[in-house]
Structures are given as C-alpha cells and as structure tokens.
Write a protein that binds this DNA or RNA. Structure first.
Lengths: 232, 232
DNA sequence: TAGTGGTCTAGACCACGGT
DNA sequence: CCGTGGTCTAGACCACTAG
C-alpha cells in the first residue's frame, strides 16, 4: 500500500511495489502489468504519478511499453542485470539464489589529510559448494561523515543499510563512468579467465548532494548492462 | 519556435532547441539554462511539457538539476561523450572540429533468406593531417524496408538522414547492451594500441517499434560513457 | 468500439537555495 | 522572502491495438 505521509514520493513507492512484484515472480517475464487506469483505481493516484513510476522502470530496462497494448515485463536475459546497482542481496534472493559477500579488505586510509574508510568486497551467489562472484566493489567513504564505520563487519551488513540506519544518511544518486578494463589479479582470482570486464567508477551522493561514497565496481561478464536511449 | 501542427511532440521539439543551444555555445558549460517558468512564458507551454524535455536531457547527461537553484549545463568532460549516439557529425562540428566518416565496407548480405545491407564505418575527427577515429559502427539494415539503400555513398551521407529523407522512416529508440571487448584488427588499425574497448550492441527501432537497424558500435577509449542512476 | 498508452493543460502545494 | 525545482491532481484529446 502507498503511504502519503511517507517522505518517499508516491511514484517511488509504486516503483518499489512493481519492482518487487516482478522480482518475486508475481509478474513474470512477458506478462502484462496492470494498465494505468487499473493502477489509478487500485491506489487512488493520478496517471501522472503512475506514469512516472513506470517510466523509471522502463529506463531501468525492467518494463517495456507497447502503445495500444500495455506495459510488459522484460526479463528476457538469463544473465544478471546491472541496473540493480544497489540492493544486491535482495536482488539475488529474489532470483531464488543465495547472496555472498566477502570482505577482501577493510582499512582506514588517509588521502590529502582526510581520513577515509576503504572497503573492498567481492559479491556473488552460492552455486552448490562454490561461489560465483559477480562484482568486486571498492568503496571509499569519508570518516568525517561516518565515524567508527571501520568497526563494522560488512560480511553480514549492507553498506547502504548501515548508512541509513546508523548514520541517517540516505544514498540517493550514483554518477558513474563506465569503462572497459583488462583482467588483473583480483579479477582472475574471483571471476576466472576472461580478459576484459566492465567497470563503473564514480561517486554516490545523498539527498543534499554530499558525496557519501566514491566507488569502483568491477563487473563479471555474466552481468549485462542494458540501456535504452532516445535518438534525435 | 515550436510548431503545434508538427507530428513531433512539443517536448521533443523543445529538447532539440535546448540541445542545439548547448552545442552551439549559446549555453556554455556551467551556465544555468532558463527556469521552467521562463520557458513557460517564452513558448506558452505548461511545466509538464518543459519538465519532460529537461528530464530527457538530464538522462542524456547534458544537463544537471539542482533543487532550488536551477538547471545547469554539464559538459565538464574534455573527452567525447557517448550520449551522442546519433548526430555524430553535428556533435563534432559543434565542438569546432571536422568530422570524418570512412566507409570500411558496404555490401548486401543474406541472413536466413532475408537480404540486409551491411555497412561498416569508421568515424572520427580531423587532427591536422591525421584522423583520430572515435567509433567503428557496423549497421545491418533490412533491404525490405530500405530498397536500393546499398547504392548510396555513406562517406558523405548520414545514415539516419537518409532513412528519414528518402524512406520516411524515423529511427527513434536504441536498445543497447554495453560490453567490454578486446582489441582486434579493426581497433588496432583505427584506434591504436589500447587493449580494451567499450562496445554497444543492439537494435534501433522507429516510431512503430519496427527494427530498422541492428547495430554494433566500438568506442575509442577517448569516448566516455557517463550515467546517472537513482539508488533505492 | 473499447481499452490502452502518448501528449498536454492548468492548476495546487511543497522543499530547497539565496537575499 | 521570492524564485527555483519536486510532487501531485483532475481533467482533456489523440493514436494505436484488437475484437
């Protein structure tokens, strides 16, 4: 249900509900989701709000609109999808798989007289006895905003949950540059023998535009980056 | 000026105007563009329409919104920017540089009993005597939609202009998957010695959802792919 | 013809930034 | 305080799809 008192905008709430219904299997690949008018009746909100939620999910590559027919779930790919920039564990769980997070290193570093917490994690899914690693995440976090964050064990705790729950800081937007990189010791160790990978480098900002994390994610080639762009 | 009789939506028209003003230098990097209310007065359209145009340009990485302050041009990068998926030549010209298109091959191929026009082009900019190549584009185009397209010389003609002008088909949306690839003979020949590149593989559809082109673009590492994504 | 999404209008109230 | 963008409402008319 939607909560009009919540600080989270209605379209974001609806977006979460639809996303959840897709990932939980309520709407399967190829299914038509309810029409805009059905959503209007169900949630008592206007088309504009519904359309904004759907628009965002289309941009994330989860939905596809067909004029005159409806909005359809598009999860054609067997591969993991990179749109899920955060909420890694939830995403994996909803695929019916077991998420694994492995802290590779966790230390306090000083850059230009400022202290940062540097966290490197390998993340993946359990495949029987083995683990298939999907990303290697390097996070650089200002200690000035997150006092004592280095004392937390991130094998069992989500970074963004901690930020929200313990520090009342909500990561909101990621600005990323996508690059192609060659394999190195890390990737060989965690991803196996492929030679090239995608990597996203950038920063994550909160509601106030403050940089809460500098991030570098290396993606296993099993993860796809799909995008839709207008021409013209 | 906006044309309400035109089949092109008002927000698309406005989008084009703003984009043009950025690329032509009327709005420079860091400048604030007119506020929504100023656009309302200037063009006699509602905020919704203006916001849709601006929203699209933000998604393309050309603009940045700051709550309470305004909308700003963001062309910080010295590197070429990949948002410019089409309109390559115009983009280069507006940077004050000379675009170069070099047809590598141009042939009719048959795939599963259907004829396609296969066009491979290297595109770049003139740097003194030399050419710096930025992309290698492979286009596969159904001959059923574009009769006799193989007789056109694409050293001097833009593919999308031809589609629009000669065939009355307007490419509208590109669905792409970004991959990392290793260098090969093509890239070594045109881009030099780097080992890894970004590549976009996918299809381009028109207003009616018909696939008008299958495309594979390899990007020189001088081109950046910047993106902004919401978290949550 | 009925139902869908696509575009657009004309308002409203709010949160944020700078004066 | 005013101007900015952020969210939302309640309509309108249109174009497309399918029975």
């Amino acid at each position: 249900m939607l909560d009009r008192q919540d600080v989270i905008p209605l379209y974001s709430q609806l977006e979460g509900i639809i996303k959840n219904d897709i990932l939980s299997g309520k709407y399967k690949d190829g299914d038509r989701i309810p029409s805009e008018s059905q959503f209007m009746l169900e949630y008592s909100i206007t088309r504009t709000t519904i359309r904004k939620a759907i628009e965002n999910l289309v941009n994330q590559g989860l939905l596809e609109k067909i004029h005159g027919k409806g909005v359809f779930v598009r999860l054609r790919e067997v591969k993991y999808n990179m749109w899920n920039f955060c909420g890694f564990s939830d995403y994996i769980k909803r695929r019916g798989e077991k998420p694994v997070t492995n802290v590779i290193s966790s230390e306090v570093v000083t850059i230009k007289d400022e202290e940062f917490f540097k966290l490197i994690r390998a993340r993946g899914v359990k495949k029987g006895e083995d683990t298939e690693y999907l990303t290697i995440d390097t996070s650089i976090i200002p200690m000035s905003l997150f006092k004592d964050i280095h004392t937390i064990n991130f094998n069992n705790n989500s970074l963004y949950s901690i930020m929200k729950r313990e520090y009342k800081i909500t990561p909101k937007t990621a600005k990323l540059t996508i690059k192609a990189i060659e394999s190195n010791d890390f990737t060989r160790n965690y991803f196996g023998d492929e030679n090239v990978y995608l990597s996203a480098i950038g920063e994550v900002i909160d509601d106030n535009g403050v940089i809460v994390e500098k991030v570098n994610v290396i993606y296993n080639s099993k993860i796809e980056f799909n995008m839709v762009t207008d021409i013209g």
